Amino acid sequence: MKTRINCPCGEYITGETEDELVSKTKAHLSEKHPGHDYSRDEILFMAY
């Protein structure tokens, strides 16, 4: 299960589950990077 991702802006995002990681990553993108939206599969591809 992948539960961590590093955003190129330097933000480190973690979740206890993949669902939580995707949710937190999408929230980060909408807040800090409007116009950048990734699918669940794309987020999990970049996660570890």
Rank of each mutant, 00 (worst) to 15 (best):
L44T: 01
D41F: 06
T3S: 01
H28S: 02
I43D: 07
K24Q: 07
E31D: 00
M46R: 10
L44Q: 01
A47V: 05
P8C: 10
T14K: 06
M1H: 01
E18G: 14
L21C: 12
V22W: 15
K32D: 05
L44G: 08
M1Y: 07
D19E: 15
Y12L: 07
K2Y: 09
S30G: 02
H28A: 09
K2M: 02
I5Y: 06
E20P: 08
K32S: 05
Y38W: 13
S39L: 02
P8Q: 02
K32C: 02
V22D: 15
R40K: 14
D37R: 12
K2T: 09
S23Q: 15
N6C: 12
K32A: 03
S39G: 06
S23I: 10
M1W: 04
S30W: 01
L29H: 13
G15R: 11
H28V: 03
Y48H: 13
G35W: 12
N6A: 10
Y48N: 14
S23R: 14
D41E: 11
G35T: 10
K2E: 12
N6K: 11
L29K: 04
D37C: 08
L29W: 13
R4F: 14
K32F: 06
I43C: 00
I13W: 03
T25R: 05
H36S: 13
R40L: 11
H36M: 14
K26T: 13
S39T: 10
T3G: 06
E31V: 04
H33K: 12
P8I: 08
G10C: 00
Y48W: 08
E20M: 11
K2S: 05
T17A: 12
A27S: 09
M1K: 02
T3L: 03
K26E: 15
C7N: 07
Y38L: 15
R40I: 05
E18F: 10
M46W: 13
K24M: 01
S39I: 03
C9H: 08
D37N: 05
C9F: 03
T25G: 03
L21F: 11
T17N: 07
P8M: 08
T14I: 04
I43E: 06
A27V: 02
S39N: 00
R4K: 14
A47Q: 05
R4A: 08
D41N: 07
D41M: 11
E11S: 03
E18Q: 14
G10D: 09
E20K: 07
D41S: 12
G10L: 08
I13S: 07
L29Q: 13
G10W: 08
D19Q: 15
G15C: 09
